[in-house]
Design a protein around this nucleic acid. Structure first.
Lengths: 196, 196
DNA sequence: ATTATCTATAGATCTATAGATAATGC
DNA sequence: ATTATCTATAGATCTATAGATAATGC
């Protein structure tokens, strides 16, 4: 099962081979089919698990009971750290969804409730802040999308970004930390903006 | 060749089949091998072309001789429109690069010079603006990364975003236009921020 | 003569299962 | 008895080429 996760995440459904998965797991491939029947079946279990993980990543944006701006800062930071620990997750999910639209259903079932809940909580925080007199112009959904966009893209494009900025492999973490600060700054700039 | 582009872009290198490409092109698959020798060879040509297209997308961020803020606004807008017209491009490139690191070389060769040039021009614009007394706090690279992040992610995540926001297929363009305005606002918020 | 095209097929994988045998749980 | 495991292989693809034949350019 772990072997299947690794193979599917690295190569995708089509390129991953049941023989390789079996070999990695240290069993004969006949056993794999004995337990999971089909490749598709095995994949579905892995996919479900990974979608769940993606849903969890949204939750990390909400954080502890601390002042508003720090809360956002912590949320962005935790979200990016989560993605950095699961760097193949977003690309894998996006790829499999566009490649096989049937999988959107799983996606909807798992992600939608979590997404709605996070947006709701975030909206409450924003509203509370506004009642305090702060100028928080955006909808929670927009704020969330901005954060997720920049964080996820940072991870997705990391190989290309490192190529283009001529960053070496051992400076990866440093590169991510610097980018994290930029993202926090960018997100906060809209939240602290003086309107009118 | 066009058939190959479509098949590779939709399915990726591994899942695309030379027989399907030939069928789509209306020739026997023997002919395909006669002209291109190997699948890998055919793919390389397609990949090169698509990387070139991606490089072009960076250039659209720079735009005509108009006032600074409008210039940025136009750039963001043109970039997103470009991506919306080539929605599979970013995912395809990212997927093939992580799946086969050998392809990073092509990527580097084509993208790096274009990327450097765009950054350079953008930096000049920012510097000129700063000399005029405007407060433009960021490096061109950071600004560029912010714009590209939000625009590309918008396209990458469009299927999921439409799922989560319960947007119907026919409202796709409207959804994109709304998101575009949000992105422009977000980008400008940092550029017009009052520092200190 | 050289280039283009077709049919047929070799050779390599890959998924999935059949059928035989060993291990395990009442 | 039921469940787990192995070997062997059927059946389906897919890439790539061989070999024969038709079309094209000097």
């Amino acid at each position: 099962m772990l072997a299947a996760e690794v193979e599917f995440m690295e190569k995708g459904f089509v390129a991953a081979k049941t023989t390789d998965i079996a070999r990695r797991a240290g069993v004969t491939h006949a056993m794999l089919h004995y337990y999971y029947r089909t490749k598709e079946n095995l994949f579905k279990q892995v996919f479900q698990k990974k979608i769940q993980l993606l849903a969890d990543s949204f939750v990390t944006i909400l954080s502890q009971e601390i002042p508003f701006l720090e809360k956002i800062q912590q949320g962005v930071s935790a979200h990016l750290d989560f993605l950095a620990a699961n760097p193949r997750l977003p690309l894998f999910v996006l790829w499999e969804i566009v490649g096989n639209p049937d999988r959107q259903e799983t996606c909807r079932e798992v992600l939608l409730p979590v997404f709605k809940k996070v947006i709701e909580e975030l909206q409450e925080i924003l509203d509370a802040e506004r009642r305090r007199g702060a100028s928080v112009p955006e909808s929670a959904q927009e704020l969330m999308l901005n954060i997720v966009s920049m964080n996820v893209f940072t991870i997705l494009s990391l190989p290309i970004a490192m190529l283009l900025t001529e960053t070496r492999e051992e400076d990866r973490d440093q590169f991510l930390q610097r980018r994290k600060q930029q993202i926090v700054r960018q997100v906060l700039s809209q939240l602290t903006e003086n309107h009118k």
